[in-house]
């Protein structure tokens, strides 16, 4: 049973297309990760699910209801922790939680009880009565998470919840998310931290250019690659011609598959091998064609390999590629109502 269903979502900001036919199904009670570089469309998708943004077209269902038609009911059922921590610097942490409780119409007794529970659970008692303006990034993020959880939502949406956080705060947040998932809360989180999605997500989707390009359980996606990941360099800095020649040569070797030339990493070659035996034969094949092994690394497949396989570049390269093309004015407009 799916708690969230997104079908054929399209959304553009002027000439920039943020979502390009996005489809997503999030099972009830699962922790679902959206992985992708900045600008891939993750935040736009999350903002649509939590009714902050309307899509240009498409269907959004949350908890069996049409979220585009029943906005208020949808809002009642979800908690949202935005990418930009939006807190009032003048209020104390406790006052902010009290305000949040009133916005969700909690009665005073229940509100006080929940605030105390969350202060305890997120380890905020030492600083909760200080003004929010004096909080560190980790404290703000914990307070923001507490705000999202105050009304005990069935669905928790988190946009990059641990970006830029210290290890302690990250660990506290991960612990709370795991506990919530175990208690049946559906969680949808976006991240560009591979290890975060790998550690937390029951299921995940990779988003690129506004649509889902791969989805499933992280372990299944890694297994689907069909073997261990190898990165090969025949020279410190190869050129494209040389890399393509090597690619032609090795793609025909038994036990080697999915050979990709990684231009961003000096035309290295990434591929999958079925067994260690294939690697030991590899240098023989290369030397026959007068190629040497300059560097070779061999690892179990990671989500980055899944990403590489799906997009032809690593997540880091995708981030760097997009970093130069980001329109901060447009992003500010997107986040402002």
């Amino acid at each position: 049973m799916f708690f969230i269903q997104l079908r054929d979502l399209f959304k553009s900001y002027g000439s920039v297309r943020a979502l390009n036919g996005l489809n997503l199904e999030v099972p009830k009670g699962s922790l679902y990760g959206l992985l992708g570089p900045n600008g891939a469309g993750k935040s736009t998708a999350l903002r649509i699910v939590c009714t902050l943004l309307a899509p240009d077209s498409g269907y959004v269902e949350v908890g069996g209801r049409d979220a585009l038609l029943e906005e208020k009911e949808t809002r009642r059922r979800l908690g949202y922790v935005a990418q930009e921590v939006a807190i009032d610097k003048i209020l104390t942490g406790r006052e902010l939680l009290q305000l949040q409780g009133d916005l969700y119409h909690l009665d005073n007794t229940h509100k006080r009880k929940r605030i105390e529970e969350l202060i305890h659970r997120l380890d905020m008692h030492e600083w909760i009565d200080r003004r929010c303006g004096s909080f560190s990034g980790g404290m703000k993020r914990r307070l923001d998470l507490a705000s999202g959880l105050l009304h005990e939502p069935e669905l928790l949406i988190l946009d990059e919840p641990t970006v830029g956080l210290d290890i302690e705060s990250r660990s506290v947040i991960w612990g709370v998310l795991k506990e919530l998932r175990n208690n049946g809360t559906t969680i949808l989180l976006s991240s560009h931290y591979l290890e975060e999605v790998d550690e937390l997500a029951d299921e995940m989707a990779i988003i690129d250019k506004g649509k889902v390009i791969a989805s499933g359980r992280p372990d299944d996606l890694k297994k689907e690659l069909g073997g261990d990941r190898v990165t090969l360099r025949v020279r410190e800095f190869s050129d494209e011609v040389e890399a393509q020649s090597v690619r032609k040569l090795i793609k025909n070797i038994d036990g080697i598959s999915n050979v990709v030339v990684n231009q961003k990493q000096g035309y290295s070659l990434n591929f999958l091998v079925k067994s260690n035996h294939v690697i030991s034969n590899l240098s023989n094949h290369l030397s026959k064609e007068n190629f040497e092994v300059f560097a070779l690394s061999h690892s179990r497949p990671s989500l980055d390999d899944v990403y590489l396989q799906a997009t032809g570049k690593t997540l880091m390269d995708a981030e760097l590629e997009l970093a130069g093309t980001r329109d901060f004015k447009l992003e500010s407009k997107k986040s402002m109502r």
Partner: peptide, 16 residues
């Protein structure tokens, strides 16, 4: 509130 995103906190709440 618009600039600092606080308005979004209000708008995502199920205000009567």
């Amino acid at each position: 509130d618009r600039e600092f995103g606080f308005l979004n906190r209000l708008l995502v709440a199920p205000l009567s």
